[in-house]
């Protein structure tokens, strides 16, 4: 029998309940999803069962993982942070600007770091030719961008509001509209790949990928804030989404490049 949304909803609720029961009993807050999260079926065979080996980075300042690769002006072009001007014509959809600050756990700006993003078009279709969802491709939208953070850790992209899309894990499975982000910090241990969502999406409770972040406050940190002052008059809707990179305390002492 095909897996239904109802089945997935019940699993999500059970995972959330177990997490909050643990919290009440003194378990630590979990800022990241567990790799073993059954409501997202693809995780079943792709999470380790052995506990990781712990490395205390304060014991060895020479660790390769305490540094990070450098990216610079050679790695980006001027149009990489404006996804609406990468083709001869204008893409279809609602124009948006997404900006925010990249900081470490101490709230200090991470300067000159690479942020990459990718997303579906306004119809909910990725630019892949072999994509299963048959919503229209937009010849004027690829949906890929990159930029470097500025001297205060700010980044900014101009793009198109992505559409939600079905993904066939279960019957009537829809991903809420989202933008994928890939972020580098000043240490290899700060690496982050994640997804940004838009406020008030009715699909949030049904999506096991978003709900894999079982802590309610942590999950809210994946949702951008609409900021009217950041909307560009006669041009775009403005969103702010600040990003905080995790990592061991010793890496917080490192100054951003």
């Amino acid at each position: 029998m095909a897996l239904t949304q109802h089945d997935i909803d019940a699993e999500i609720a059970a995972k959330r309940e177990a997490y909050y029961k643990g919290l009440a009993e003194g378990a630590p807050v979990e800022h990241h999803p567990r790799r073993d999260y059954a409501p997202y079926r693809s995780s079943a065979l792709r999470h380790p069962k052995q506990p990781p080996i712990n490395i205390d980075v304060s014991q060895d300042p020479e660790l390769v993982e305490l540094a990070a690769p450098a990216f610079g002006e050679r790695d980006i072009t001027k149009i990489d942070n404006d996804l609406t001007i990468q083709h001869p014509g204008k893409p279809i959809g609602e124009r948006i600007t997404v900006e925010g600050r990249l900081v470490d756990r101490e709230g200090r700006p991470l300067r000159g770091q690479l942020i990459e993003l990718w997303q579906a078009n306004s119809a909910g279709r990725y630019a892949h030719k072999i994509e299963v969802h048959d919503a229209p491709l937009d010849p004027n939208f690829t949906g890929v961008g990159r930029t470097l953070t500025d001297g205060d850790g700010w980044y900014k992209f101009t793009t198109i509001q992505p559409g939600p899309y079905p993904w066939a894990q279960h019957t009537n499975a829809w991903r809420p509209a989202h933008i994928h982000f890939s972020v580098f910090g000043s240490a290899f241990t700060q690496r982050l790949v994640t997804q940004m969502y838009f406020p008030n999406d009715p699909l949030f409770p049904y999506d096991p990928i978003l709900q894999s972040v079982t802590d309610d406050a942590a999950r809210r940190r994946l949702i951008a804030t609409y900021v009217h002052e950041k909307s560009v008059p006669e041009f775009s809707m403005g969103y702010q989404w600040d990003i905080v990179l995790d990592g061991p305390a010793a890496t917080w002492m490192e100054e951003g490049r």
Binding site: H32, S43, R105, T194
Partner: peptide, 18 residues
Amino acid sequence: SVLPTPSHTVGPWYGYAL
């Protein structure tokens, strides 16, 4: 208030981007 941004899966559609 400075708490980590949670990780998410890279998903299946990164191939044309990363």
